[in-house]
Simulated scan of single mutants.
Amino acid sequence: MADIWIAVVQGIVEGLTEFLPISSTGHLILSGHLLGFTGDKAETFEIVIQLGAILAVALLYWRRLLRLIGWEDPSYEKQSNKSLTLIHIFLAIVPAMLLGLLMHGLIKDYLFTPQTVLIGLVVGGFFMIFAERKHTIVIAKTMDELSYRQAFQIGIAQCLALWPGFSRSGATIAGGLLSGANLRTSADFSFLIAVPMMVAATSYDLMKNMGHLSMDDLSFFLVGFIVSFIVALLAVVSFLKLLEKVKLSSFAYYRFILAGVFWLYMVGIGLD
């Protein structure tokens, strides 16, 4: 029963944080240490529940994903001759994929610790504030207005998220603002490119961790997957509505508070 509660808690953490600019990996590492849930099984579990979050976004953006591969949507009315294509997606995901493959071992060995996560939370927060303050000219008000150059700039920004705690969505949304996209377009594009990006990353990690999967853990992994899917579904919809009322910097300030609180906790237990 204790394992099931861990699955529920970690599933909620993953679902809530995966697509918010506050770092799901960072939250999972921190919550895992608080729960005493670390090691190979924990790492494999995190991969599985990320797939639940991916499924939630794929469900929300299914029309757009199908249009990218040539499906004609009769309800879709183009506002201009421009259109988002697979080339945009390719330009946005390849930089981080290539760098992730080259540095996968180093990242897993040296950056998946509470201390490095706290650094990522703080530095990523400052990057988000910087992007928001520099965001003065809007070139793209919808994803269909994004240029190849903007997609590539967002892809370069996504490389920063290879540092746990920095946040993939935080990096890409901030990168979108710096490229000249508005906040909603940056968020939509961030969520859309998360599907191929995370499918590739989790599939790679899953293959490397297959030895840690066991039929005895089936219910544990299934609970985490389902909880993550449901919570991520609600979180993405809520976040998109929230963007109409709050600024990106609000999430940066949350990151600073989280980093400060957890640093004080680590000092208290002698982990600093």
Rank of each mutant, 00 (worst) to 15 (best):
L160K: 03
R133C: 02
G15A: 06
K247L: 10
V117D: 04
F191Y: 08
Q153S: 14
L60W: 01
G36F: 04
D3A: 12
E132S: 07
V13T: 13
F90D: 05
I139S: 05
W62M: 08
Y253C: 12
I89L: 14
P95G: 13
M215W: 11
P114D: 12
D216N: 12
L84S: 00
L243W: 09
T172N: 08
G39H: 12
L240M: 15
G100C: 13
S147C: 14
M197H: 01
G155T: 08
L91P: 03
S75V: 10
L183A: 07
S186I: 02
I12A: 11
K134V: 02
I93Q: 00
E244L: 14
T202F: 02
I6V: 15
F220D: 09
P114F: 09
V94F: 09
L264D: 04
G124A: 13
W71D: 06
R255Y: 05
Q50S: 11
Q153H: 11
S83Y: 04
Q10R: 10
H27S: 13
C159W: 03
M1I: 11
D188C: 08
K134M: 12
A194V: 01
L35G: 10
P95I: 06
Y204Q: 03
H88E: 08
V8N: 08
S179L: 00
C159H: 04
S203Q: 01
L28Q: 11
V57I: 14
L118G: 12
L68G: 15
Q79D: 11
L240Q: 07
V195H: 03
A194S: 15
C159Y: 03
L106Q: 13
T85N: 05
T202Q: 09
W71S: 12
S169H: 05
I119G: 11
T113M: 05
A259L: 03
G11W: 02
A7T: 03
D40T: 14
A187N: 01
R149W: 14
F251M: 07
L20N: 00
D73Q: 12
V94Y: 02
R133W: 11
W71P: 06
A58P: 02
L234M: 13
Y254T: 00
G224N: 07
Q10W: 00
S80R: 03
L20C: 06
I139A: 06
G170M: 04
R64Q: 14
V8L: 15
D216C: 03
V117Q: 01
H33F: 14
M103R: 05
D73P: 02
T85A: 04
L20K: 06
G155A: 12
S238G: 08
A7V: 02
G180C: 09
P21Y: 07
T38N: 09
R64W: 02
M197G: 13
F256V: 11
R67Q: 15
K134G: 10
Q79W: 00
H212T: 09
N209K: 15
L192S: 04
G125C: 09
L118D: 05
L177A: 09
V246W: 05
Y204R: 06
E43T: 15
L30S: 08
V138D: 00
L162N: 10
Q10N: 14
V231F: 01
T142M: 12
L146G: 09
C159Q: 07
T85M: 06
L233T: 11
